[in-house]
């Protein structure tokens, strides 16, 4: 689904990521870990074509990102649900409208009152907050709303960048459970985190591959995590 073939990324004259090779396969559950500033977010952005490799190649669903048009990239992003740590929303639209926005963007549906939408909002536990505006939500509620928005198009891959960074342990467990449930439905999940306790918790629920960025390179982490 996502293939990195000797990919590197440089910025401002310095190389941030170097010689990265990785194949993210369908149905896999991946943790991407490493110290702050190691380049986890940069690698994730490369995985959904928000950034482009300065060396090597990255293929999304078999297509080389460097040869894709802007419209092709937009189309590909509909197959990749992204959850950011800071969860950006359109602040003047309700939570429900924000979650439904990918449907409008793709032209697949325009009604925010769609039954599936309500089901999804209930699944992430936000039914009572559906009409609220994003700035009125707590950190955990924002993360769950972002997750709902990321999966409403039933994407093949869910990429979450530090999804538990701003929430307490209980909410982290809840979010992890939601992501594990999605993985059991056949979705590929990639989570960037530096929270080792989250990884340990996940290992009891799902077979996860743990990747670590160290010295600008990607390594398969050992079992000592």
């Amino acid at each position: 689904m996502i293939d990195l073939d000797g990919a590197a990324y440089s910025y401002g004259g310095g190389e941030l990521l170097s010689d990265m090779s990785l194949a993210i396969v369908q149905g896999g559950f991946y943790f991407l870990t490493g110290p702050s500033g190691a380049g986890k977010t940069t690698l994730l952005k490369l995985c959904y074509a928000a950034l482009f490799p300065t060396k090597g190649a990255i293929r999304l669903f078999g297509q080389d990102v460097t040869t894709m048009s802007r419209d092709d990239i937009a189309q590909i992003r509909r197959r990749i649900g992204v959850v950011h740590q800071d969860c950006q929303f359109i602040d003047h639209l309700s939570v429900q409208e924000n979650i439904a926005m990918p449907l409008s963007v793709s032209g697949s549906a325009t009604l925010a009152e769609d039954a599936n939408l309500k089901e999804l909002i209930a699944w992430v536990g936000l039914t009572h907050r559906a009409k609220a505006l994003p700035p009125e939500l707590s950190g955990g509620e924002r993360q769950r709303a972002a997750l709902a928005r990321a999966i409403i198009m039933s994407p093949d891959i869910i990429i979450a960048d530090e999804p538990t960074g701003n929430v307490d342990w209980e909410m982290s467990e809840r979010l992890l459970t939601l992501l594990v449930e999605l993985n059991k439905l056949g979705k590929t999940v990639v989570i960037a985190t530096h929270d080792l306790s989250l990884i340990r918790s996940a290992k009891s629920q799902v077979q996860a591959r743990i990747l670590r960025i160290s010295n600008k390179k990607l390594q398969l982490a050992g079992a000592n995590l």
């Binding site: 802007r70 937009a74 992003r77 924000n98 926005m101 990918p102 963007v105 793709s106």
Partner: peptide, 15 residues
């Protein structure tokens, strides 16, 4: 921010 969100969820430039 609106534009960033729209790009993230797969909106084409035309949209």
């Amino acid at each position: 921010q609106v534009i960033a969100v729209l790009r993230l969820i797969g909106a084409k430039d035309h949209y």
